[in-house]
Design a protein around this nucleic acid. Structure first.
Length: 363
DNA sequence: AACCCGGGGAC
DNA sequence: GTCCCAGGGTT
């Protein structure tokens, strides 16, 4: 598969041993009691794999449990409102994953009669499902033979073969996929894939890997070189710019105003207090945009939220609403939020924190 | 404060 | 084809 080039220092007999070793290790030391493994239906494995993108197992488990309690079947998810899906995603991050999950459920309902596709090409047509996720679903739930390449597998393979370069780079990714395909066994692929992920999560961890317990240590090139910490190479460092925003906490009785964010970009589709520049005339803005006259404003301490590519400084400003022009708030995209009411909507983690602090201040 | 991460989409 | 974007938790 990989053409036996110099990129693959592994000879064929050893490859068979690689998969056998992983499968044997998985039987004794792998995880068999994860929520999505019992039962491992395509729908449950799909939801878990989407949640596990960019997110660790321990974080995902409670989200998965709540999600399954609310949406036990694909049909339940397809019939849901997006706000309720995002509500269950609140705090998990990368909210495009939830929107794609919801869109894909509706597409399966319409295009596939509600039956989860079992052909990888059909799976790859669905939003949010790429090569690795499709392979994981079909191998873990249906036992099909597909390689996977999640973060754990990338780390194991990059070390075992001493692959230089940052794994997200196209050329490095190509080499890793070729190796993943090369090692993938024809039999027992589910145990192999799950074992490889478990091994990467528990032994071949990023810092101070537990090579003493690793069944692959004898053939591992990084260990032979004593350079485990240098594979895989980290993302090139970049200076993160700082962006600043004002968030207006406008309180009317026991409720606070939220507006829906645009569907794409940061916190897409979530609800958020109205924002403006630090220099903006927020009194005029409240009047013009929302028809609200507000009382004296009080600045709250700045809080910082870090994204992958910038820092966000949030400067909250609290004010109570004195009077309101009728009708302005009837437009969609506005919401007087109260955590005790039945509002079900997605909130970004720092926004949820802000609303929580507001609640505590009033108590 | 630095590090990690699958897929979509802009280019 | 190749890079940039996205959001939390963990260390």
């Amino acid at each position: 598969m990989d053409g036996n080039t110099a990129t693959s220092p592994t000879s064929a007999p050893e490859v068979d041993g690689f998969a056998r070793t992983v499968i044997a290790w998985h039987a004794r030391h792998g995880r068999h009691d994860l929520p999505w493994q019992n039962p491992a239906t395509p729908y449950r494995v799909w939801v878990s794999e989407i949640m596990l993108q960019q997110t660790q197992v321990a974080t995902v488990i409670p989200y998965f449990q709540r999600f399954m309690a609310r949406f036990p079947t694909l049909a339940a998810l397809a019939g849901a409102e997006i706000d309720e899906v995002l509500h269950l995603w609140t705090g998990l991050g990368y909210y495009a994953r939830a929107r794609h999950l919801h869109q894909a459920a509706r597409r399966i309902d319409i295009d596939h009669g509600g039956r989860f596709p079992s052909a990888i090409d059909r799976l790859l047509e669905l939003p949010g499902i790429g090569r690795s996720t499709a392979g994981a679903i079909l191998s873990l739930a249906l036992g099909q033979r597909h390689p996977i390449l999640d973060g754990n597998v990338k780390r194991v393979l990059a070390r075992y073969h001493a692959i230089p370069g940052w794994p997200a780079r196209a050329e490095v990714q190509r080499r890793l996929w070729a190796l993943a395909e090369h090692h993938t066994p024809r039999q027992r692929n589910a145990a192999y894939n799950q074992g490889l992920m478990d091994l990467g999560a528990s032994l071949c961890i990023r810092v101070r890997p537990r090579c003493g317990r690793c069944p692959l240590a004898a053939g591992c090139a990084a260990r032979r070189l004593d350079r485990q910490s240098q594979f895989p190479e980290p993302r090139p460092a970049r200076v993160k710019p700082v962006r600043r925003t004002r968030m207006l906490l406008l309180q009317r009785a026991d409720r606070v105003l939220l507006v829906r964010r645009p569907p794409a970009g940061v916190w897409g589709g979530l609800w958020c207090p109205p924002e403006c520049d630090l220099e903006a005339d927020y009194v005029a803005l409240c009047r013009r945009q929302f028809g609200l006259r507000i009382g004296p404003a009080r600045a709250w301490p700045m809080r910082r939220h870090t994204f992958s590519h910038f820092h966000l400084e949030i400067h909250p400003l609290y004010a109570s609403v004195q009077s309101e022009d009728p009708g302005v708030m009837d437009r969609p995209g506005h919401l007087w939020y109260n955590e005790h009411s039945s509002n079900r909507c997605g909130l970004a983690a720092p926004v949820r924190q802000l609303l929580q602090d507001l609640q505590e201040m009033r108590a």
